[in-house]
């Protein structure tokens, strides 16, 4: 979660992390933040507004569809994202399935 909220920029092994968010308003994004951070879409928006308007950073790259997320994940070994369980295949490595 710290990676998605910009608090950490590296994986525990030291390699840099590139989080990929699903588009705002998508049910998967809402569920991801609600379940893992207990934050509503408005709270996430307020959180990133705080970061942006202090010039401390920008929110993660956003993709419109799960297919796009998978494409980015397959081309960038440092990318991390979240998808619906039904979309998991051999091209993805699951690190957490709460």
């Amino acid at each position: 979660m710290d990676i998605f909220l910009g608090r950490r920029t590296r994986f525990p092994d030291g390699s840099s992390a590139v989080p990929i968010d699903q588009i705002e308003g998508s049910p998967i994004r809402e569920e991801f933040y609600t379940r893992l951070a207990e934050m509503s879409p408005a709270q996430i928006k307020a959180f990133w507004s705080k970061v942006i308007f202090t010039g401390r950073g920008q929110p993660p790259i956003t993709v419109a569809t799960a297919a796009e997320a998978k494409k980015l994940l397959s081309t960038n070994p440092n990318a991390i994202s979240y998808v619906d369980q039904t979309l998991v295949d051999s091209s993805l490595r699951v690190v957490l399935a709460p």
């Binding site: 994986f11 092994d13 390699s15 840099s16 590139v18 049910p27 998967i28 569920e31 991801f32 379940r35 893992l36 920008q58 790259i61 994940l73 397959s74 081309t75 960038n76 070994p77 440092n78 990318a79 991390i80 994202s81 979240y82 998808v83 619906d84 369980q85 998991v88 051999s90 091209s91 993805l92 490595r93 699951v94 690190v95 957490l96 399935a97 709460p98």
Partner: peptide
Amino acid sequence: RIIVIVLSAISVYATGAYSADQDADTQ
């Protein structure tokens, strides 16, 4: 719905053409 957090299957230690410090998508 079950959400899973995923990494690509390629090992994070792989030394591909992609440079970790260079984020091509940064505006």
